[in-house]
Structure formats: structure tokens, C-alpha cells
Amino acid sequence: MIYAQILAGGKGTRMGNVPMPKQFLTLAGKPILIHTVEKFVLESRFDAILVVCPADWLSHTQEIIRKYISDQRVHVVTGGNERNETLMKGINYLQQHYPRHDDDVIITHDAVRPFITQRIINDNIEAALVHPAVDTVVAAIDTIVQGTDDQASAIPVRANMYQGQTPQSFNIKALVTAYQKLTASQKASLSDSCKICLLAGQPVTLVRGESFNFKITTPYDLRVASALVEKRD
């Protein structure tokens, strides 16, 4: 079976003084989250589409999903305290409500990347059906400088560098197995779901993203997103 999980658990602290998490802010007349979910309901191969949100915003998320989305495959689930705990809570929901198969896959995507295309979704599905883990990336344009504070420690070869986006997609059985092997300190340090598989020695396959598949994180990003929607419309 093929599932989608929209990660809407962030608090949006870099968005500044706003009344709600960034995924619920309005973009062209409706919440950013809804723009994202609408892209996923267009894909008929999904058996279920989860929207995983903070517990404090569960009722609000359910309300806006009812208002804008009529697709019965969409379910709202409470997330965890951090990204990968949220991811696993979504998987736990699926394992409790749907039959399990060794070839089940999940396509996970940030709620605040509303410009994802059907091509990117399709490429993730096709790759996840044959590989344990898939990451969506774009080639790095700028030189990457590795360092801490004000000291550079390395400048990697730019041709080998990519910027990570989402979706990140997984064979569910392989992901759960890899996650269960991690120590508590490893789990606490993770900021990227594909690293779960890398730490377990599993390969991660890359698929091509798009520069416009960006994450709305700051007020500037929201202005850019508004301009893109206005130009498209």
C-alpha cells in the first residue's frame, strides 16, 4: 500500500510574531497546509493521506480539513515533540488502522512546501517502491562551507553537494527497523529522517526536486510564496 504523510507539527518560531504555526497562515485566501494537501489528493495511488499536527492544534486542523478537503482518504493525527517522533506516530496510526505488508511505502512531506509538483510526488512513489529510502534534493548552487561559530573546518566539493527538500520516502518496514536500532541519543540528535536509514547502513536514493519546492519558514518566504501564487493565478 502507498501512503502519504504531511508533517504539520512545526511551531514556526522563525516566522516571527504570528498568531499561529506557519502551516496555518493564509496564502492566497487559504491555509498553507491546504495548498499542500490539495497536491496530494490529486494522486489516486495513495491509500491514505495523513496530516500530522501538534496536539494543541488538532481541532483547528480537523476543522480546516473539513472546510477545504472532501477526500475521505485524509486523516488528521496528533504528532510528537520532534520531527521523527511525529513521523513514527503517523506510521503507528497506519499500522493500527490498515493491514501491514512488507512493501508498504510512505511519502512524507513538509506541510509548508506547497509548491510540490505531481512529477516530484510520482518520482518519490516510483523510487520508494524499489528502494528502502528516498530523498528529494536539488544541486547546491553556492559553495558549502562547513564550520562552527566563526571558524571554517571544511569546504566540500560543490559538485557533490545537494540541498535537501521533501518528500522523503521510505519502505515502512525498513524505516521502522532502522529507527528501532538507534540509541536514544541518536534519536535526539536527528534533524533529518533519511539519516535514520543512513545510520542503519541502508542506502538512500536521490530524486530531483525543484528550486520552487521551497519551505516557507520566514516572513520573506511567505512574501515570495504569495508572489508566486499571484503570478500563477
Rank of each mutant, 00 (worst) to 15 (best):
S169L: 06
R66K: 15
V229P: 01
Y3R: 07
I196M: 00
V157D: 12
E63Q: 13
Y220P: 00
A188N: 08
P54V: 07
R208E: 15
M15D: 05
T86K: 00
T86G: 00
H75L: 12
R158F: 01
E43H: 10
K173P: 00
H60V: 10
V176Y: 03
G10C: 03
K22R: 14
T205W: 06
N84W: 09
V130F: 11
I64M: 11
H97I: 07
A225T: 11
V41A: 00
N17C: 02
Y162W: 10
Q95F: 09
L94S: 06
K181H: 03
L198Q: 11
K22M: 09
R45C: 14
I69Y: 12
M161N: 09
V112Q: 08
L58P: 01
P21R: 02
K22V: 13
D135F: 01
D56I: 14
N122W: 14
V18L: 07
I172N: 02
N17M: 03
A111D: 08
Q146W: 03
G147H: 08
S226L: 07
L222T: 04
I69H: 12
D192W: 05
K195F: 03
S191W: 10
S185D: 06
Y68N: 10
A133E: 07
F115T: 03
L50A: 02
T61G: 07
K39T: 03
C194I: 07
A111G: 12
D123I: 09
L50N: 01
R45K: 15
F46K: 06
S191K: 14
G16S: 13
R14L: 15
L182P: 00
I196W: 00
L228S: 01
R119I: 06
I120H: 06
K195L: 11
A178P: 01
A127G: 05
E63I: 02
D233N: 15
Q165R: 13
Q72T: 15
Y98E: 08
R208S: 14
Y93G: 03
L33F: 08
Q23V: 13
V76Y: 05
S191E: 12
L206I: 03
H35M: 10
A174M: 06
D104Y: 02
H109E: 05
L129D: 10
I106N: 00
G164V: 05
G201N: 01
I196Q: 00
F24K: 01
D110P: 07
F115Y: 07
R113Q: 12
A139S: 11
N122Q: 15
G164T: 05
L7T: 08
N17W: 01
A178G: 01
E85N: 01
N122A: 15
D103T: 15
D56K: 15
K215A: 08
M161Q: 10
P21S: 02
Q146F: 08
G80P: 12
V77P: 06
P156F: 08
H60E: 11
L129P: 12
Q95E: 11
